[in-house]
């Protein structure tokens, strides 16, 4: 084989494999017993009980900013905050769940993606998706702190503790991390437990999806019962007139879907949700990566060819002399 032909074949082969295989991996499917939460923005009253319960359960300090030492001033997720209630404000901000001149609450926390970007990009498997429950967990003992998880997360959820010399990544692990293990014990997340209105509802993803769709099908103003706590055995339900829902369950399909679902009266792009298609970026990235490096076949072939060429070419001017 002539050198030129070899190179041509090598480059061509690489390109074909890269482009061909890139489409190979489809989105992951929800875990068999996927657990999740349903956040209904229209039920949220902004009491932040979930925020304080989260901090207590996870042993995290409040974020104190100057001028307000009494309250947790967390403005967004950070190394010290896994869950925060944010507000959508428009114009005069008078009417709840109204797009113009209205306001609405939105919860920011880990969405527990069905096809999690953080798990896909982590070089050291410090991010793991539970094969049974689909909960995305973090393991500090493996983590090197490269923060690729933050970059690979469509929601910018994993947060490094920049304010500490020996920090780690902070993210919601659905109260199931070692030492807490609420879900394994059959319990629910702290935020769902304390939510007074059922705005954050815990349960299996399937049941929550059904409940979300039931709510979207309600006529605005129709009085209905909203379960609270764990949808499998809810607390005394909350009775309320339904809001005018957007016909969109966030997390049903976005980038492969999420285990934490959101429904709202405000379009999700205005609540800060990212512009996601149905295909997960992780699946495309892994497609390319596996196309190029599956079983290291391509690099091995390339190395063999390169070794042959270099050997032949160095024999001519060995010892560095020409």
């Amino acid at each position: 084989m002539k050198r030129r032909d070899f190179l041509k074949a090598a480059i061509g082969g690489t390109a074909v494999v890269a482009l061909g295989e890139a489409e190979a991996r489809a989105n992951l499917e929800p875990a068999p017993e996927a657990m999740g939460m349903l956040y209904d923005s229209t039920l949220c009253i902004g009491c932040k009980a979930c925020v304080s319960a989260c901090k207590q359960t996870n042993g995290m300090p409040p974020v104190i900013e100057e001028g307000n030492p009494q309250f947790d001033s967390a403005r967004d997720l950070s190394g010290d905050t896994l869950n925060v209630i944010k507000v959508y404000l428009n114009g005069k901000g008078e009417h709840k769940d109204t797009v113009s001149d209205g306001y609405a609450f939105e919860k920011r926390s880990c969405m527990h993606c069905v096809d999690p970007g953080c798990v896909s990009v982590c070089p050291v498997t410090a991010m793991r998706r539970d094969p049974k429950t689909g909960i995305v967990s973090y393991h500090a003992d493996a983590c090197i702190g490269c923060r690729n998880c933050t970059m690979g997360c469509p929601y910018n959820v994993p947060q490094f503790q920049y304010n500490q010399p020996f920090g780690q990544i902070s993210k919601c692990q659905m109260c199931n991390q070692a030492g807490v293990g609420r879900i394994d014990k059959g319990g629910m997340t702290a935020c769902s437990e304390v939510c007074p209105t059922g705005a954050t509802l815990f349960g299996p993803r399937d049941a929550l999806m059904k409940e979300a769709k039931r709510r979207l099908a309600l006529k605005a103003g129709e009085v209905t019962q909203f379960p609270r706590g764990d949808i499998r055995h809810p607390f005394h339900p909350h009775e309320k007139a339904a809001a005018t829902y957007q016909q969109h369950v966030w997390g049903e399909k976005e980038a492969g879907g999420t285990n934490v679902l959101h429904i709202s009266a405000i379009p999700f792009d205005q609540l800060g949700m990212p512009p996601l298609g149905e295909r997960s970026a992780a699946s495309i990235s892994e497609g390319v990566q596996h196309g190029l490096y599956s079983y290291l076949a391509l690099p091995a072939v390339a190395l063999a060819g390169l070794t042959y060429l270099v050997r032949r070419n160095t024999n001519g001017h060995k010892e560095g002399e020409e």
Partner: peptide, 23 residues
């Protein structure tokens, strides 16, 4: 003993807006 509809006409300033980020 049913829950009230919270009519917070002006959400307190302590709620961070969507675009407010830490740091």
């Amino acid at each position: 003993f049913s829950l009230a509809d919270v009519k917070t006409h002006t959400p307190p300033a302590m709620f961070p807006e969507i675009s407010q980020r830490q740091g």
